[in-house]
Every structure is written in structure tokens, then in C-alpha cells.
Design a protein around this nucleic acid. Structure first.
Length: 489
RNA sequence: CGGGACGUAGCGCAGCCCGGUAGCGCACCUGAAUGGGGUUCAGGGGGUCGCAGGUUCAAAUCCUGUCGUCCCGACCA
């Protein structure tokens, strides 16, 4: 382990301190897979908890996990015109197999719509076969020009959901349901507030009818697209002959949706919550919620404190129940390391609560508890400790969300502003700006060119201005749409 | 592919302008004291200065080339 002390973690410059110390993530060291991420076990816990929580929700909403091939024949991708156009520049293509030139190149999946819907087509004959609702946990490859740890890696791990429905409305309902599911996860588990909304034509998924996204604000005021949910319409169904006979007897194309979130969320978590002391993990995603640091002077004390710590853990776990409800502890009884050093160690790693207990506390039937989010340290009674800890964790989860939301709101602008003012804001720290747009892609492109800001989405009502902007940015004409503008990752 | 920076000990860096044969912090090893917020003191090990040429009595330092990394931009979740 490298030297913790040298680290000056800057929330707004997380790339300077991510590696090794906090999440144990790194980029591979062989070109050209340098853009690929390696996550070692002690950081992986956060992603595993994310995965488990999402997987549970997918199953609760009627989806099943399935696994499809890594290789996609080039011809599959070619079938949907917009899709192939969108992905062709970033595809990794396998041309040789078994030492021979392949008749047809194989694309390493950048996403699995084509290979999955070709299967759906075989599985579907009647409306009774629909809906099909599956999810796949998989790694995919996109040959990016420039990579960035967590946010844009050459290969990334994600889940991609794929469904087929009999009607447009049912597919649209699925798309929106998943968007809300993502929101609940991001706000409830990650304590990361998101704006949901519709992507513009310029920003939507290649091949989709409509794309919705969740947009989170990072501590540098940039937007991070954290998840997407697409209503694919009948585009892929038509390309892959995904048809079914309706109740009325007619042959119809199915309606598809696809949606995904990736390891990018780990980057979002870091950039939303970390501070100058390191990572802060919302309790629900913390692999360890409470670290106990026993304090001792003599060997006898050490023995006593170890017993006490074990008893605290056993009592709390018995109290809190089984499975997900069970409180997660770590006892740091390492010898030869002073308590202060342990405190810094665990703060850096974002463990939500620290419980200190020594002979003096024991004599007073109490212990010290420090919160990672606020830094508060208080003495609490050992009586009823499990409930105290559980309450504190729940409070932290809420407080972290509230703090992140307050920060986003403080950096959001909803009143009408001039284009000059808009440029000024985007040249500075940036902001989430709710501003008018006339729907013209050329205007969208020109504003991107001049300010680097893009339309993150046409936001759902909760982010919109109570008094909607009446004038379009740049053109000044009456606004057709209210859009969320921001610089983004 | 354009623009910019940087390669010196395991990690982070100074030294380079003005050449004289390498240093600091952390980490590591030994010993002692210490032990409720990154202990202190004493001693110690570790580097062909990215690589290849050139200039020079002498190159980490100057010159040329080369390789690599990072940052910014185009692309993108």
C-alpha cells in the first residue's frame, strides 16, 4: 500500500487520487488495453452492492437474467442503419479465428441489441410470447479515443436490459418504469440526486426512438449521465424480423426497450461524495458500515477490548437480523498502529461510522462514535447501541442525499438568463441551467461549439422552472422546449 | 490525430537555467522510549538520473534523436 499521507484527495479532481488507495482501481498497463479498468477486491465491494441492489429490483419488476455471446457478426450490426452508424467508429473487430481469416468479421459487443433481438425474433410467434423481459450483466467494449478511469474505459462492466412488447405504450411504460427504478437506486442507495428527462435527437442512442437519462451533478458542476433507458420503437424489430401475431390475427412488429447502467456509477459516487479526506460512502453501499477501533494500553486491555468489540458486533448483528439488514462491521485491532493512524486510514476509505472504545469508555458504559460525512464525534451509551448505530446510518444516508441535493440546487439556475450570462456561467464553474430551446439541432450544436455546454435532457417536471423560460438561448425567440444545459463528462 | 507538460530510489519530488560524478519527504530495516487523531529519537539499506547518440578533461544538467506517460481538444456512457 502506498503512502496515505501523501495523498491530497480533491473531490473535484478525483483522478489524482483514485488509484490504489481508495477503490483499488487501476488501468491495465499494456497497450492497447490501457483504457481497461482493473478493480481489486477491496474496492469491488461497492460495485457488488450496487449490482445486488439493482439485480433484486430487476427481478422484482419481472426481469430475468440471461447471457448472450460476446461476439456479434458484423452483419447483425449492419442491419439497423442508425445503430451501425453510431457504433462503427468505436467497434473492436475480430478478423481472425483459429489462425485463419474469418469469412465474416466478429464485432466485440459494444452493446447487445442486435444479437439479443435476433434471438427474440426466434422466440416470438404470438402476442402470448410477449412481453420478454431480460437483463444481462456483461462487459462490453467501445474503442474510445480517450479513456478515463470509471467514466470512460475501453471495456466496461454494466447491465443491459432488453425487452420486447406488443404495443408502443407498453414499451414506453417499461422505459419510464426503468428510468424511475434507476432514479430510486441512485437517490436512495447512492445518495446522488439525478435529473431525469428526455435526450435530444442529437444525444439519443443510435437506433432508438427516444432515450431517457438520469443526469447527476458532480462537485465540479459538470453533469454525469449515469444511466439511460431507451424506447427503441420498432426499429430493431423491423431489422431483425421480430414479429408476432396479434390477438386480432394480424402480423405485427414488436416494440423494444433497452436500458443500462455501468461501473461509471462508481465514478459518479466518488465525484458526488468524496471530500479532501477521501471517499465518503453512503451507508447502503458501504461494504463495511462501521469500523470498530479498540483502544488499549496494556496486553490485558487489548484482550478485554477485543472481547468487547466482538460482543458489540455479535449483539448488533443479532439485533439487526439477517441478510441485507445485518449491520456490517470491521474490527481494526491491528497492533503496532496508533489509533489516529487508523482513523485516517478508514476515513480515506469512506467507512461511514467509526466506533472507538477503550478502557475509559468501558468504565463509563459508553463509546465514541464518529460520522464520516460530517466529522461529528459523540459519546453514546453502550445500552441500546445497535439501534443507535442503525439510526445513525439511516440518518447519514438521508443527510448525504440532502447535502448533495442542496449542492446541486445551489448550482442550478432556473430563472431566465441572457445568452451572454449563460456563456459567462459556462466559462466559469458551470451550472445546471434550465433554459429555453427552439428544438433546432443546429442551435444545439452552435451552443455546444461556443460554450461546451450541451442539452443533457429535456427534464421531467420536477427540475423545470416554475416560470418556464420564455425565450430561447442564442436565438431569443419564444421557447419551444425547456432544456437542462450543462457541461458534462 | 492536433496543443501542452513530464520521465531522477517502492511512491511523491528537488537538483538542470549557470556541467564537477545525486539529494529530500514518505515507505522499508535495526534499537529504544511512546501509545484516546497520521509518535519521537538514534542508526541503516536502496538509484547505470527513460533509452540511444553527440559536445566536453568531465553530462541528471548542454545538443540531437527516440521511446513512454499524463493533461487539454476532436469522439463518447
Amino acid at each position: 500500500m502506498a503512502d496515505d499521507k501523501k495523498l491530497t484527495p480533491r473531490a473535484e479532481d478525483f483522478s489524482a487520487w483514485y488509484n490504489e488507495l481508495v477503490l483499488r482501481a487501476e488501468l491495465a498497463d499494456h497497450a492497447p488495453v490501457r483504457g481497461c479498468m482493473i478493480i481489486r477486491p477491496n474496492g469491488y465491494g461497492i460495485w457488488e452492492r450496487m449490482q445486488r441492489a439493482l439485480d433484486t429490483r430487476f427481478k422484482e419488476t419481472g426481469h430475468q437474467n440471461a447471457y448472450f455471446p460476446l461476439f456479434i457478426p458484423q452483419s447483425f450490426l449492419n442491419k439497423e442503419a442508425q445503430h451501425v452508424e453510431g457504433f462503427a467508429p468505436e467497434n473492436a473487430v475480430v478478423t481472425h479465428g483459429g489462425g485463419k481469416l474469418l469469412d465474416e468479421p466478429l464485432v466485440v459487443r459494444p452493446t447487445s441489441e442486435t444479437i439479443i433481438y435476433s434471438s427474440f425474433a426466434k422466440w416470438t410467434q404470438s402476442y402470448r410470447d410477449l412481453p420478454i423481459k431480460i437483463n444481462q450483466w456483461a462487459n462490453v467494449v467501445r474503442w474510445e479515443m480517450r479513456t478515463r478511469l470509471f467514466l470512460r474505459t475501453l471495456e466496461f462492466l454494466w447491465q443491459e436490459g432488453h425487452t420486447a412488447h406488443a404495443t408502443h405504450d407498453e414499451a414506453e411504460a417499461e422505459t419510464r418504469m426503468i428510468l424511475e427504478l434507476y432514479r430510486e437506486f441512485m437517490e436512495g442507495h447512492m445518495a446522488m440526486p439525478v435529473v431525469t428527462g428526455l435526450k435530444t435527437e442529437a444525444e439519443k442512442f443510435a437506433g432508438a426512438l427516444r432515450t431517457y437519462s438520469t443526469e447527476a451533478m458532480m462537485q465540479d458542476n459538470k453533469a454525469l449521465q449515469a444511466g439511460t433507458s431507451h424506447n427503441l420503437g420498432q426499429n430493431f424489430a423491423k431489422a431483425f424480423d421480430l414479429t408476432f401475431q396479434s390477438e386480432a390475427g394480424t402480423l405485427e412488429h414488436a416494440w423494444n426497450t433497452s436500458w443500462g447502467v455501468s461501473t461509471r456509477m462508481v465514478g459518479g459516487l466518488i465525484m458526488t461524495h468524496s471530500d479532501d479526506k477521501g471517499l465518503r460512502t453512503p451507508p447502503k453501499l458501504a461494504p463495511v458500515e462501521i469500523v470498530i477501533v479498540p483502544i488499549w494500553k496494556t496486553d490485558e486491555d487489548l484482550g478485554t477490548m477485543r472481547e468487547v468489540a466482538k460482543r458489540i458486533v455479535a449483539d448488533a448483528q443479532a439485533w439487526s437480523g439477517r441478510g441485507e439488514d445485518r449491520l456490517r462491521f470491521h474490527i481494526d485491532d491491528r497492533e503496532g498502529i496508533r489509533p489516529g493512524e487508523k482513523y485516517y486510514h478508514w476515513e480515506l476509505r469512506g467507512i461511514p461510522l467509526r466506533l472507538e472504545i477503550g478502557p475509559r469508555d468501558l468504565a463509563g458504559n459508553q463509546c465514541m462514535i464518529a460520522r464520516r460525512d460530517t466529522g461529528e464525534k459523540t459519546a453514546v451509551s453502550l445500552d441500546g447501541l445497535p439501534a443507535t448505530l442503525a439510526d445513525l446510518l439511516a440518518t447519514m444516508q438521508r443527510d448525504m442525499f440532502a447535502a448533495a441535493l442542496a449542492r446541486r440546487e445551489a448550482n442550478s439556475i432556473r430563472e431566465a438568463i441572457s445568452y451572454d450570462r449563460f456563456k459567462e456561467i459556462m466559462e466559469g464553474p458551470g451550472a445546471f441551467v434550465s433554459a429555453g430551446w427552439n428544438g433546432d439541432p443546429a442551435v444545439e450544436a452552435q451552443i455546444k461549439e461556443e460554450t461546451k455546454a450541451t442539452i443533457r435532457c429535456l427534464p421531467d417536471p420536477e427540475f423545470r422552472s416554475p416560470t418556464a423560460p420564455t425565450r430561447c438561448l442564442l436565438t431569443g425567440e419564444p421557447a419551444k422546449f425547456e432544456a437542462l444545459w450543462a457541461k458534462s463528462y
